[in-house]
Design a protein around this nucleic acid. Sequence first.
DNA 1: GAAACATGTGCTAGCGCTAACATGCACGGA
DNA 2: TCCGTGCATGTTAGCGCTAGCACATGTTTC
Lengths: 397, 397
Amino acid sequence: MLALAHVSTDRRRASSAEGVSGDGADSTCPVPPCIRRLVGDSVYDEPVTSLPVLPPRRQRGNRKGHGRVTLADVAERVGVSAITVSRALRKPLMVSPETRDRIERAVAELGYIPNRIAGSLASSSPSAVAAILPSLDNSIFTDVLKGAVGTLESSGYQVVLGNSHFDPRVEATLVETFLAHGVGAIMLTGARHATRARSLLARSGIPVVQTWSLPRRPIGACVGFSNYDASYAMVRHLIERGYRDIAFVSAAVANNDRAAARRRGYAKALVDHGLFDDPRTTLESTFDLAAGAAALDRIRSVRPSTDAVFFANDVLASGAVLAALRLGLRVPADIAIAGFDDVELAGHLMPPLTTVRIDRIGLGVTAAELMLDALAGESIAGRRVDIGFEVIARATT
Amino acid sequence: MLALAHVSTDRRRASSAEGVSGDGADSTCPVPPCIRRLVGDSVYDEPVTSLPVLPPRRQRGNRKGHGRVTLADVAERVGVSAITVSRALRKPLMVSPETRDRIERAVAELGYIPNRIAGSLASSSPSAVAAILPSLDNSIFTDVLKGAVGTLESSGYQVVLGNSHFDPRVEATLVETFLAHGVGAIMLTGARHATRARSLLARSGIPVVQTWSLPRRPIGACVGFSNYDASYAMVRHLIERGYRDIAFVSAAVANNDRAAARRRGYAKALVDHGLFDDPRTTLESTFDLAAGAAALDRIRSVRPSTDAVFFANDVLASGAVLAALRLGLRVPADIAIAGFDDVELAGHLMPPLTTVRIDRIGLGVTAAELMLDALAGESIAGRRVDIGFEVIARATT
DNA sequence: GAAACATGTGCTAGCGCTAACATGCACGGA
DNA sequence: TCCGTGCATGTTAGCGCTAGCACATGTTTC
């Protein structure tokens, strides 16, 4: 509906804020005259059907009411029935052009905003879908979200967000909350979920899309890739480069099937190549740069012969690369480091990080498309979309 | 309600996934027996009131209905009226313990999930609030969100998320959508908003909290700090350290009052110290590491004498520090670099980045508290909360 | 000319829940 | 015995909107 305005990098212009639509300035900020004089093509003050201030609304009946303009108000003004207004807004072709026109004018004049809550209730057709992410700290999840939100919003669905903090119990609570809010579909992360969440979803019957994994028996549909294969491929890459004493660090596998699959892929690759899966150097960690540094430190003290560390996510790997830099370690000469996800930072590190690229935006878009299909009445049960992965060999290995 | 499970770093345990609650494995992943045998204290299979499969529901009347268990179903089963069930769930003290008990049992047996949509409509009390962020790419915004979501969820509100992509028109559309969804309060980023958004908010009368800035005349309340002062303080720090040819890079100021205020603070500090605000080295940029690198490059070619660059956000500054490392530039000997926000990466760079620390989680929490106050009936209009800032002088300056 | 159809609009009856106002009942004090 | 009081529960009437039909008008067909 609205095109996003992309502001070019080298355009330098001050906005002509004052008095138009909000300060645009901190209170302690005297606006220098030189800037004040500049004229900006700010989009704040775009022409807009001015919304007149209405007289306070009379109360009908003895119930509170939002005091908001309703469909009935518009109908009354135009001299038609409420249903006609409703139709003019939702199915314009069902209403004669003249009536539609008058209704549209009245809507603008009154500043009517449809109550989608009431609409959803009456039509029992949802206006929102939910996405449950395990974390907002890591851009890998917000990338997926971005892809999904873009697709869903352009189809008129609102996206409600939940953060499970990697806790299946929190996830189950979120599922319940979202069902209570009548969302039309739910996007989950990963393949494993609390039994409670599963039964809630099963009885609700709403479409479910699982992401990041390809469970054999998805709840509904799933979009992801083989974490096992991707991890296996990366370890094979390390072995091909000549590394033998490889360590592995991932998130805690207990609540994270992706991490678990990556660990299994790692272990299998080692075994297949006659290498030892040393439990001392198979670690779990939280998700932050400091943890990556700490893991590197631990591995080097526990098994000094370690020549490569495979981190199952780029944040940890980046933390390790940065730590190596601080410690004066040469990467990969002293120790090789590999990551997973290909976040933006990975390519900017020195040396740039070897990692596994996942098309996260595409993952989100695909998940959203599946949800839209389901909302359009199609059955998506059992659909499994593999978005693949790609080992990006850069300079840390 | 639910405590988050924090999994310690060194606990290594495989999950006993198979057959309990979903694969927990990619389809291509053969689960090695060694792992299979391990017993995890996974939270997936926690005891749960098992939800019996119900017979398909009869349709009442000729309307569709969700096919979902309703309040009336529970009431019928218990042999009370719907309102009693409603009260037992929302105001337990109004119902006798025995009745309440029977109702709770029936709720569990039937797997009843209240329809909050209908509840909101009937009570005209909202169950969700909205947060509009300019971006999900930058952790600074998701940090605020995290603080806000935590606070709001524990008060039973759902948080609906909007991403304006730094475009006031998109923001206005989001405001309209959220109003249509009947959110009880809206959190916005920054001080400047499209006229349309302002008038929509004004007539809706719902509580609004602006974040990151302290506009003189906030729409409702605001939580933030003086971007102008913070920027001024950083530039003063640079000047005190002896830098004289200072450059400035920020996001485009036209749609971003924070960037605009920071630029004004920068300009004023230069002028106050007898330095020249060179337009050639006052740049605007997008928000990513590559852009920081590009800006550094541009500045060095445009004005080689530049001895310090102040980036109005840490992502750009980090990109520049990383680029300097790649180019073999010594920081700060060859060029000093300062950032803004104190993101996690800042402290992990080599050398660690001088920046301005903002308590973003606290900002989100405070914003949420203001919303909660407003939702509790308190007037928050005109409240302005300054969360302050702190210049963190590290090694890049 | 009547039947058959299309088109635009309105009426009614809900969606599932809850506010406001009953109602019924036990208790105690006058 | 009566009445007030407090408590637990029920009845009614919506919240704002939309599905399903009914009903007027034209317009076409034979």
